[in-house]
Nucleic acid binder design. Structure first.
Length: 382
DNA sequence: CACCCGTGGAG
DNA sequence: TCTCCAAGGGT
């Protein structure tokens, strides 16, 4: 109760000071911002691409994709016209592949309505564009005073306020009001970029540089002496480890790859057939069972290869690859797409990172030659 | 609201 | 080696 009152008071005080803060913030930004490629454009399409790529993805990762993607898909028309297979290949390695599919849908919606909507509320109606992404495009491309509340900006407000609980509900509304006051008080595009830049380079989650922060010294988090405490991290539970057997199933000089179901986890990507171990099952037993159940396929001469570990957000897998052979006339029985490919063709299909780690072990030369490969190291282990 | 959706880099 | 998590959005 008393905490609630205290928060209201400090929130009102901060809200009133926002215009002053933005003055010093913009001075700092003009002096010390990084030179990022998407800061040179007002093209809503290019800004959209960068903003979607940057969702939950680090700048350094996006840098490796952004310009190549724009060369491949230079405008809404080219993106709308492509097929999902090619699009996923361009997105391969970025993760959260639903982002690419929603961009595809949005591109077609934009063409259908005859061009880009200019206002944030309209942008937000497009697939994959939420309030923050809409605010970014509307302010950067069209100069609208549309607020952003991304992880960076949320952290800045939380620290200035000394917010010691996860922001949700009414607190979140208050933080959006602060972002709204910020874009009302000065050039919206500059304010939004400056806030995100401050969060990314100074008011960082860990090891913030409070000594060089342009914002006032009454920041509650800085005064506490332990700014990293703010905002509090939500508790994380341990990720379960799943054991998975995979087959590199040769038929002549080609091996089998299967396409994952279109929706859901890694939807639409290609992979090596196989599956999770069941209770009491050995690795080769699990592979034979999965191949029978999923593909009605029998294989012989299983040769194990070293296991490869790969982590996802909520679980972890250990992939146990087996080279083996299918009969000359073997065909998998499955409603999903499959192909028998040469190892030279690995680079033509979109695979999840875990599968690339396996390829890197099986076909070191080939895999390293594939454009995205050098990344997949040899971490593994039983 | 709680959960789902990937990945690679930092410390 | 291990934990954390980044310019979120959809359901």
């Amino acid at each position: 109760m008393s905490r609630g009152r205290t928060e209201e008071v400090s929130f009102a005080a901060l809200l009133a000071r926002v215009p002053d803060l933005m003055g010093t913030l913009l001075d700092w930004y003009r002096r010390s911002h990084r030179d990022l490629p998407w800061r040179h454009t007002h093209d809503p399409y290019a800004l959209w691409v960068s903003e979607v790529m940057l969702q939950q993805t680090q700048v350094s990762t996006v840098l490796a994709y952004y310009e190549r993607f724009l060369r491949r898909y230079p405008d809404v028309e080219s993106l709308a016209a492509t097929d999902e297979e090619a699009l996923l290949k361009a997105w391969e390695g970025l993760g959260y592949y639903g982002r690419a599919k929603r961009m595809h849908l949005a591109a077609r919606a934009i063409l259908q309505r005859g061009g880009w909507p200019r206002r944030a509320v309209e942008l937000q109606a497009l697939p994959g564009i939420g309030r923050s992404t809409a605010g970014a495009i509307a302010s950067f491309a069209f100069g609208e005073a549309a607020p952003i509340l991304d992880g960076n900006i949320r952290r800045i407000w939380a620290r200035l306020l000394g917010l010691d609980r996860p922001a949700s509900g009414q607190v979140l509304v208050s933080l959006w009001r602060l972002s709204g006051a910020a874009v009302q008080s000065a050039d919206p595009a500059l304010v939004n970029q400056a806030l995100m830049e401050l969060g990314a380079t100074v008011c960082r989650p860990r090891n913030p540089f409070c000594g060089v922060c342009p914002l006032p010294s009454w920041c509650e988090a800085a005064l506490s002496g332990d700014p990293e405490r703010f905002p509090p991290r939500s508790p994380r539970h341990a990720r379960p480890l799943l054991e998975v057997s995979l087959g590199i199933i040769w038929r002549g000089g080609r091996f089998l790859v299967t396409k994952r179901a279109p929706n859901g986890f890694l939807g639409g990507l290609w992979e090596l057939p196989g599956g999770k171990w069941q209770e009491g099952e050995t690795a080769p037993e699990a592979l034979r069972r999965e191949l029978r159940e999923e593909l009605a396929l029998e294989v012989i001469h299983l040769r194990p290869h070293p296991a490869v570990r790969h982590g996802y957000s909520h679980f972890e897998v250990r992939l146990h690859p087996f080279e083996c052979e299918a009969a000359d006339d073997a065909e998998p029985h499955t409603p999903l797409a499959h192909r028998w490919i040469l190892s030279e063709e690995i680079g033509t299909l979109a695979f999840p990172a875990g599968t690339h780690k396996v390829f890197a072990r099986m076909f070191p030369i080939r895999s390293r030659a594939a454009e995205s490969a050098g990344r997949y190291g040899t971490r593994d282990g039983p």
